[in-house]
């Protein structure tokens, strides 16, 4: 137990030890200052020249968003058609078939939006070509899209009065060449030297200890797993994701994958402080995010280490905690830590089966995705947090009877309308989706789909409801993890979750960038004695309260029907 706790404390400490210098480095990259990776500049200039892009042309916030949306729409169509025809494309040694149109629709959106919800199993549902040139490609560009969007926000917060917010392509390209690519290479090398496959040969054949012939899938797994975590993507090479022994062979790879998925989201919070030269502001945000993460993590570890009360009542001892769905080599503490970090950070990879976790843990995992801004995904985590800052500033202004101001600009009706729409969008798409799926389950149980509604749920009752709620929560938060008890590869789930994922990705990028761009154009008001300080612990607590009220309470009734009811039913 103590060793397991020491393991996760070491992992978090290592994460911070890397994230803080990475934040300083990222700020230097995007400010255009000298860094040790400046030797990439000729390569970047070559890419820009063949693309016909002049990064000296500065863009306003609308031009940034148009560029972001345009390139993402192209990638979506490309990914969709590659998946539809993957059996006819090269690099398919295992002879895997094409994806069906509804599955390709879901998968293409899922990887485009950095969600990586997988309604297929990687061993049989994708080829080496699509794993490389669709999934791994989208791992890089979707993470870089989020980072580039965040840098636009940084720039809008920095300059006093301007509509020139740098160049989207410059930010996007540097996010790949200066951050994602170099770190991914280092991680992939560590993973491949620890037993993760790096091979283009098809399935291997071996004889098991009981004499069966087993065909084992492999491929260049280490390269994909590196960017899968670094870019907070989460889509695994294998169906079991990082619970698979070839996708996470030992405790060292577990630490490496865990650290890899946290360093950019946490590093970007510190990058904000270095970029704006407001380190105290960044520390306050980091403090709020860390407090939120710990409030989700501690009950989870307590529940997992304590074991399942239903099993305890049967007189069975659980000295290692609740081990159903967990890997013995990781144990309940490292599994609980991974489950919470992967849901607050929006990676969505798993090293244990979330469906088997204790109801308290399921509750905490869902809360992490429902709040979706305690660190959050690459770039987009802080964009979500920014919405709550705007609302907190507005409410604080009303409380003290002053015009709300943030970073020297007045928050007025237009910004508040956008912030409110974005804050309400997240619960809206999750709860409406869950309501529709519950209706279909009850009223159309025998619909003629690949998986009939009557066969969707592995567990009846409260837990079954949690499986559906989790699926839409994971989709809307662009997380991608799943309560894998849900039979989701049919037209209903593929299409409905596809729409939830795409709405949950782009509108929460458009909203904060629009607010920041509009604010950047406003007259700058110098700080005075009456200005609300945004870098104090009081303001941090105010933001935390806003997050708790808006994000958490919106979901409480739905959570009461799922994990909360299940928890109390276990105690009977």
């Amino acid at each position: 137990m103590n060793t397991e706790l020491a393991g996760i404390i070491f992992t978090y400490a290592l994460t911070l030890a890397i994230a803080i210098p990475l934040g300083r480095y990222s700020a230097r990259v995007f400010k255009g200052e000298k860094t040790w990776l400046d030797f990439m500049a000729p390569f970047e200039r070559f890419i820009l020249r063949i693309s016909g892009i002049d990064t000296r042309k500065e863009m306003n916030w609308k031009q940034h968003l148009f560029a972001l949306l345009t390139i993402n729409s192209v990638w979506l169509v490309y990914a969709f058609f590659c998946l539809l025809f993957q059996a006819h494309l090269p690099l398919n040694p295992d002879g895997n078939p094409n994806q069906t149109p509804d599955l390709a629709f879901n998968t293409a959106i899922s990887f485009l939006v950095n969600c990586n919800l997988q309604d297929y199993s990687g061993e049989s549902g994708a080829t080496y070509f699509t794993q490389h040139f669709v999934f791994m490609f989208l791992h890089f560009v979707s993470a870089a899209t989020g980072i580039a969007a965040l840098v636009v926000l940084f720039r809008a917060m920095k300059d006093k009065v301007t509509d020139k917010l740098g160049n989207f392509w410059d930010y996007f390209l540097k996010a790949i060449t200066r951050i994602l690519l170099p770190i991914s290479i280092v991680i992939a090398i560590i993973l491949s030297f620890n037993g993760m496959p790096t091979s283009y040969k098809g399935k291997d054949t071996l004889i098991s200890m009981q004499g069966d012939t087993v065909h084992v899938s492999r491929g260049p797994v280490a390269a994909l797993v590196a960017i899968k975590h670094l870019g907070t993507n989460g889509g695994g090479w294998f169906g079991a994701n990082s619970a698979h022994p070839l996708e996470n062979p030992n405790y060292l790879t577990n630490i490496v994958e865990m650290v890899a998925q946290c360093i950019i989201p946490i590093g970007l919070v510190f990058a904000l402080g270095f970029y704006l030269n407001k380190k105290k502001f960044a520390y306050v945000i980091f403090g709020v995010m860390t407090l939120g993460m710990l409030l989700l993590l501690i009950p989870t570890i307590q529940a997992e280490v304590g074991g399942n009360p239903a099993i305890a009542r049967m007189g069975i001892s659980q000295p290692t905690g609740a081990m159903e769905g967990k890997e013995v080599r990781f144990g309940p503490t490292a599994s609980g830590y991974w489950s919470i970090l992967t849901t607050v950070i929006s990676t969505g990879s798993v090293n244990s089966m979330h469906d088997s976790a204790m109801p308290v843990s399921g509750f905490m995992m869902m809360m992490g995705m429902m709040i979706n801004c305690f660190y959050g995904g690459c770039g987009v985590g802080f964009l979500n947090y920014y919405i709550f800052i705007i609302i907190a500033v507005f409410i604080s202004g009303l409380m003290v009877g002053r015009t709300p101001e943030f970073m020297g600009r007045k928050i007025e009706a237009r910004e508040m309308k956008i912030a409110s729409l974005i804050a309400l969008l997240h619960p809206f798409i999750i709860l409406v989706g869950t309501a529709i799926s519950s209706y279909v389950l009850v009223h159309m149980p025998n619909a003629d789909w690949a998986v009939k509604p009557s066969a969707w749920l592995a567990s009846p009752g409260y837990h079954g409801f949690s499986e559906m709620l989790y699926q839409y929560t994971s989709s809307a938060a662009n997380n991608g993890s799943g309560f894998e008890g849900l039979g989701d590869n049919n037209i209903f789930w593929n299409v409905s979750a596809g729409f939830v994922m795409i709405l949950g990705r782009f509108l929460p990028i458009i909203g904060p960038i629009a607010i920041a761009g509009i604010l950047a154009n406003k007259k700058f008001i110098p700080e005075s004695a009456g200005t609300l300080k945004s870098d104090t612990s009081t303001f941090g607590l105010m933001t935390f309260a806003v997050i708790a009220i808006i994000a958490a309470l919106s979901f409480f009734p739905a959570l009461a029907l799922g994990p909360i009811a299940e928890h109390f039913s276990l105690l009977k």
């Binding site: 148009f66 539809l84 094409n98 509804d102 390709a104 729409f499 795409i502 458009i510």
Partner: peptide, 30 residues
């Protein structure tokens, strides 16, 4: 392959992104 389904999904992509582009203009004037 069900080409009608494929066409519907491509149309859904176009409409969704058209709405995103419209939302950028909408947020400017809201």
């Amino acid at each position: 392959m069900d080409l009608i389904q494929v066409a519907i999904y491509v149309l859904a992509f176009i409409v969704t992104f058209w709405l995103f582009f419209k939302s950028v203009n909408y947020f400017e004037k809201i």
